[in-house]
């Protein structure tokens, strides 16, 4: 189980960074090309940015593991703090199956996410200037006294669109121990 959790955490960190890079939230110089799971990805050079993503992901991991949290989104906001895009990761960890899997199989499946994400540009419209972003997790119940770094998280305001969003699936994988889906939500026109 440990293995799955750490792999998933790594995956999320890299994927979130890649989303930022693909969307051009920061100038390209902020990122450098690295290889993860044998796939080229963009990795943040800025230590604080790395630290932010890392802390967000690791602190959310215990909840993900318990399936209190099944959705994690990178939300891109405009000047007035309204969401422009949501990159939603839907995560389902099946602890009961954690024994029988091979790491390589899951790595293989996860790799596809990076590849699809790197070429997701055509699905997306250019962002207006002055955007910001945040990581949001959706929990089914109040996480209560979470162990570790849970205190980082603050309840968020509901920034909902008027219309139901439009969904563009990027990639899905399902395996016994782990289901991951990534899709983009836009406000409908």
């Amino acid at each position: 189980m440990e293995e799955i959790t750490s792999l998933l955490a790594e995956f999320l960190e890299v994927a979130i960074t890649l989303v930022l890079s693909v969307r051009g939230i920061y100038p390209p110089e902020v990122f450098e090309r690295r290889r993860y799971l044998n796939v080229p990805v963009q990795w943040a050079r800025h230590p604080e940015l790395r630290e932010y993503i890392n802390s967000a992901v690791t602190s959310a991991m215990p909840w993900i593991q318990k399936r209190i949290v099944e959705k994690l989104a990178v939300v891109i906001l405009d000047k007035s703090n309204m969401p422009l895009e949501k990159f939603t990761f839907q995560l389902q960890v099946h602890q009961e199956h954690s024994g029988n899997f091979t790491r390589t199989e899951i790595e293989y499946a996860l790799r596809a996410f990076f590849l699809k994400l790197s070429v997701a540009q055509p699905y997306l419209e250019p962002l207006p200037p002055e955007t910001s972003w945040e990581i949001v997790i959706f929990s089914k119940e109040l996480p209560g006294d979470a162990e570790g770094k849970g205190h980082f998280w603050v309840p968020a305001e509901a920034k909902l669109w008027d219309q139901p969003p439009v969904i563009t699936p990027i990639k899905s994988m399902s395996s016994k121990p782990l289901n991951v889906q990534l899709f983009i939500e836009h406000p409908s026109m």
């Binding site: 962002l127 949001v136 959706f138 929990s139 109040l142 980082f152 309840p155």
Partner: peptide, 15 residues
Amino acid sequence: GVAMADDTACNGNSR
């Protein structure tokens, strides 16, 4: 459920 948002750090405005 309750949604939590973490707004800490790095609200880097893109340009």
